[in-house]
Design a protein around this nucleic acid. Structure first.
Lengths: 202, 202, 202, 202
DNA sequence: CATGAATGAGTTTTCATTCAT
DNA sequence: GATGAATGAAAACTCATTCAT
C-alpha cells in the first residue's frame, strides 16, 4: 500500500514565527475546513480556499506545500483538540458506569462534530493514507481506554468495538440537514440505543 | 423535408437497441461501480472506467453523457435492486416482531453492501443532487413501511428514525477493511444493539 | 431490365430499389441543408443529419464519404438549379435594359435564397475549397453574361462587378429574421439602389 | 472565519490586476482575432490561440472562461472602437449631405474592416447569441442616428434601412481575396451605387 | 443497401503547483 | 513573507468516420 508519492518532497508545513503569520494560517485552515465540509475535499480547489480566506494562492502554498498537507494539518489540529477533550472526559469519568460515559461521550462528540463539520468528512475519505488511519486508531484507542479506565470490568474487546461504533453513530444525524425535528429524534434514538446496550452488556 | 426537428442536441443518452449494446452497457456500469467503490467517485476517471471495461472512451460516452449520469445510472439500478429485495422482505415479515425484522434487515443490507460496495459510497456523497436525495428518501420510506406493516403497533415516528439509522449502521463495518475479526465483532455488536433497542421499545 | 432471376432468395426488383435509394439521398441532403442553414456547417454533426432524416449514420456514409462531400453535393445540386434558372432568365431577357434585368434577377435570387437558406451559408464559408470558388465563379460569369447578352453595350468590367455584387446584396435581408417589416423595406431599398445605379450607368 | 463565501465557482474570469497581465490579455485577444479572421471561429482551437500568443493554454483560460467568452471579449472591444469612431464621424458630419456621409462612412468602415478582419467574421455567425444581436443593433442605431443628425430631413425609416445595408455592403469586397483589381472596382461600384441612391432619395 | 455500435484522435476545460516580482 | 500571473499535465467530452452484422 506504500503509494506515498510525496516522498522526495519533504513535507514541511512551515511554522509561522510571527503573530500575523499565525493568524493567516488559522484563517487559511478555517477557510479550507469550511469548504471541505461544504463541498468535499476533492471538489474544493486551492484557489477557492485562498480566495475564501482573502489570501493569494501563493500565500496558501507558503504554509502548505500540497493540498493533502493542508488537509492533514487541519485534521491533525482537530484530532488534537478532540483528543484532549477525550482526555479531560476520561479524568472526569473515572468510576462512572458505561451508560453514563456513553451519555457524556455523546454530548462531547455531538458538539464537536457540529462545530467541526469537516472532521468526519475528512477522516473517512476513500484511499486513506497512513496518517489518516493513525488518527482513527488513536481516537479508537482513546475511547476504548476511556471505558476501560472508568469501568475496569468491561470486556476490553467490547470496549474496542464500542470505540469504533460511537464516532460513526454520531455522523448519522449530520446528514439530516433541513430536517431538524427528525435529526433531533435520531440523536435521541441513538443515545437510548447505545445506553441500553451498554447497560445490558455490563 | 425531415420534420421532427431532432430536439437540438439531446440525442446523446442513447439506450442500446441491440443485445450486444445491452451487454456493453452492463460491462461499463460494472467497471465503473468497481472503480467508484475502490477509489471513490472523484478519483475515478472516465478513461479508467472505459479501459477497465475494455472499451473506448467514446463508447462510454455513447451511453452516458457525463460522469454524473454514469453514477446516477448505476445508483438507480442498484437502488431498484435493493428496493425490490425490501419489498420481498416486507412480504415475508408480516406479523413478525421488530427484532426479527431487524435481524432480517441486517442480513439483507449486509449482503447487499458486501456485493455492491459502490452503493453506499455513491449514495452519500458531498453536494448531493436531488436524485440522490430522492433515492435515500425512497429507501427510508420503504424501510419504515416495512416495520409499520409488520408491526402496526410500532410508533411511526420511531419507525422513520430507525429507517434512517439502520442503513447507516450497516456502513460502519465497511470501513474496517483489513481487520476482519474486529469487523465481524462490530457487525454482531450493532445487531445486538439494534435488536435490544427494538425489543425494549416495543 | 426485368430481371428474371427468381431464385430461392427473393430478389427485390432493382428499379424500385434504386428509386428508394434516390429518395433516401434526397432526404439526407434535405436534412443536412436544413441543419446547415439553421446552425451552420461546423456546428452540425453527421449524427444529427442522419437522425433528422430518420436514417442511420451508416446510411449517411453510404452515400457521402465525408461531411465535406455532403456539403459539396448539396451545394452542387443547388448551384445546378440556380444555374439553369439563370439560363432561363438569360433567354427571356435578351434585349431588355439592365434595370429590367436587375428586377428579374432580384426576384429570381430572392426566391431562390428564401427557399434554399443553406445556399449562401455554405457557399461563403471560411477556408474555401477550390470547388467552392469554382461555383462562385461560375455564378459570377453567368450573371455577367446575362447582362452582356441582353445589353451588349454594357461595359463588361462593370457587368462582372455587378455579378459579384448582386448575389451578396440578396444575402442582406436574410439576416433580418424576426423583423419582417424592416426586411421587406430593405429588399425594396436594395432593389431601388441597384436599378437606379444601372440606369445611371448605362 | 472567512466570510465572503466566494460565490460558488464564479471566480474564473479574472481581470488582470497588474500591468503585465494587461499586456498578456491584449496579446491573447490579438492572437485569437488573427486566427478567427484567418480560419473562422469554429476551426480555431483554443490551443492554437494560446500557442500563437506564446502562452500556455492555462493562461488563456485564466482570463477567458470559454471560447465563446473570448470571442465576446474581442468583439465587444472592437465594437467599442468602431462605436467611438462613429461618434467622431457624427460630430464632423453635422450638416453634410447624405452622399457625403456615405463617402465618409465607406472610408471609415473600409479602413476598420481592413485592420480588423475578424470583426465581420465574428459578428455574423450562425446561432447568434443575444450579445451578438445587441452589438449589431447598437451599430445600426448609431449609423442611422448619424444620418438623422446630419440631415434631419431624411426619412428615419430609410435611415434605418441604410444603416442595415451599409455595413453589409462593406463585407462584399472582403471575400475577394486574391483579385485585387476586381476588389477595388467593387468597392468603387458600391460607393457610387450608395451615393447615387442617397442623392436621388433626398 | 442498411444499420448502429464502436473507435480514438482531437478539443475544451480544470486545477494543483511553481516562480518572478 | 506576499502576491497573482503563469504553467502544463491530465481530465472531461465531442464527433467524423469505420466496421461487423
Amino acid at each position: 500500500m506504500a503509494s506515498e508519492k510525496a516522498s522526495a518532497k519533504a513535507l514541511k508545513p512551515r511554522r509561522p514565527q510571527q503573530e500575523r503569520g499565525r493568524l493567516r494560517v488559522a484563517a487559511l485552515m478555517a477557510s479550507a475546513a469550511e469548504l471541505f465540509a461544504e463541498k468535499g475535499f476533492e471538489a474544493t480547489t486551492m484557489t477557492e480556499v485562498a480566495a475564501n480566506a482573502c489570501a493569494a494562492i501563493g500565500t496558501l502554498y507558503l504554509f502548505f506545500p500540497t493540498k493533502e498537507a493542508l488537509a492533514e494539518a487541519i485534521l491533525r489540529e482537530q484530532a488534537e483538540e478532540i483528543s484532549s477533550q477525550l482526555d479531560c472526559l476520561s479524568e472526569r469519568m473515572v468510576g462512572h458506569a458505561p451508560a453514563a460515559i456513553a451519555d457524556a461521550l455523546f454530548a462531547l462528540l455531538g458538539d464537536f462534530l457540529k462545530t467541526h463539520p469537516a472532521y468526519s468528512a475528512m477522516l473517512d475519505l476513500p484511499g486513506d493514507a497512513s496518517w489518516r488511519r493513525a488518527i482513527r486508531i488513536r481516537r479508537r484507542n482513546q475511547i476504548s481506554a476511556l471505558f476501560a479506565r472508568a469501568e475496569p470490568a468491561l470486556n476490553p474487546e467490547q470496549a474496542e468495538r464500542i470505540a469504533v461504533i460511537v464516532p460513526q453513530l454520531m455522523r448519522i444525524p449530520l446528514a439530516l440537514t433541513g430536517e431538524k425535528r427528525l435529526r433531533d429524534g435520531v440523536v435521541d434514538e441513538l443515545r437510548q440505543m447505545l445506553k441500553a446496550h451498554l447497560e445490558a452488556g455490563s
